[in-house]
Design a protein around this nucleic acid. Structure first.
Lengths: 242, 242
DNA sequence: CCATATTTGTGCGTATGTATG
DNA sequence: TCATACATACGCACAAATATG
């Protein structure tokens, strides 16, 4: 049979690899669990076992699965465990997982506060805000896009400060904020839009976790409010109860 | 111009209404925020303002939006606020929002514990478990599908008990469990699969919030562990920090 | 308080596609 | 094929409430 990739334009091993990756991203194959045997996968996709092996090899190379001779192929825990605590710092969380956290400024601009943003920040509607769009990565993997708003009066020139600091914690420290904490966190999910998909290197139609959060200083005064969009397949949020 | 609905078979006002509803479900139009003006919507969809008005009217009838003369049309907050506390009870949370919580047994069966489930429940791998599949609703809206596992030895006949009690709290009370609390919560997101989509009355391709949680008794002994799939567009999780 | 622009709400007329007999 | 009834869609005009400076 001359199956090959003709017609679809995608090699068979690639189709199998994508299918398995989707299963992992979707949670059909849970982290740590065993994948079906190579023969079983070959039957479900109606391909030769060699084709399955090639698919699994590429996944193993990327660290998504790990093959154990005589036992099976296991899904590696790829999701970044993201605890939602009062003290939530991207850099600390990612660093704790043995990955290198990175920040990258996408855009900084000024805009007047909408009623909702003003309420979150304890400002008057229409007050000048600085809006910082940033991409956050763990090693070389994009994790989330954050849109952060802060008062242009209290933090003048915050955009250029972030551009060099590449960290919200360092930015706040630059203005004399020694400590801050998470006051409120709201989690929803949605489908990634085209621009975020490109930035997060995510396929269209994939889910994202949307987190709206406000940070306050030690006196409970609002400092920044933000909306972060996480690639759902790359993180898991952990709620720690008291 | 023979616009009408020819070819597509779907009335224009219906297409506009669906488009706006998607925007709301997706978070493109945030809760409480103002929609674009009727003229602007009419231009983007290239239809008459009356057509837009009809679309908005149907959405207003269903309570998704609210029009204010002279001001604009606003998105009503439709999502159920779901606080993730140590004490998390579906019935209490939904009831607090002024809606009537309902539970409905889909299926109950017995299965041996996988290594992962056994670890969560503090049992031996292969121990007999009862698996309860249930649909939870607020008023008549499906909110989530929960798969709950509990020890078949400690809770014999749990399936039929749940079928009549229709509540996990009442089920546990039936076995003498007076109080319990949430020990761990893990949140991810995915795309709904076909069976869950049908049960949740959700379109294919829509995102779901997946919550893995374990409840323990007052001594910290694991009681039940579950995986719930929430229709993302119908809930928002709130993390309450201490 | 005033003037003006914006936005939703309402009415009427016209044209066209759909359903039925 | 024709006649009729109805829903859909468009265009224009104006009223009423609101926002803004």
């Amino acid at each position: 049979m001359t199956t090959q990739e003709t017609a679809s334009g995608v090699a068979l091993w690639r189709q199998v690899a994508d299918g398995i990756e989707r299963g992992i991203a979707n949670g059909s194959f849970a982290a740590g669990e065993k994948l079906p045997g190579e023969m079983e996968i070959a039957e479900t996709y109606r391909v030769n076992r060699h084709t399955v092996r090639r698919a699994l090899a590429t996944l193993a190379e990327r660290g998504l699965v790990r093959a154990e001779r005589g036992s099976g192929t296991y899904v590696e825990a790829t999701r970044i465990a993201y605890p939602l605590r009062s003290r939530t710092r991207f850099s600390e969380i990612v660093g704790a997982g043995g990955r290198e956290p990175r920040g990258q400024l996408i855009d900084a601009s000024e805009e007047p506060a909408s009623r909702e943003l003003a309420r979150q920040l304890g400002l008057k509607s229409g007050a000048p805000l600085i809006r910082i769009e940033a991409l956050r990565l763990a090693d070389r993997t994009p994790v989330c896009i954050s849109t952060t708003w802060l008062s242009a009066e209290h933090f003048p020139g915050a955009g250029s400060v972030f551009a060099s600091a590449r960290s919200m914690t360092k930015l706040l420290a630059h203005y004399g904020v020694r400590d801050y904490r998470r006051a409120s966190t709201r989690i929803t999910a949605a489908i990634v839009d085209a621009t975020d998909a490109a930035r997060l290197d995510l396929a269209l139609g994939r889910p994202i976790l949307v987190v709206d959060a406000t940070d306050v200083d030690t006196d409970g005064q609002p400092l920044v409010t933000k909306r972060s969009r996480f690639a759902a397949e790359r993180v898991e949020f952990l709620v720690e109860n008291v």
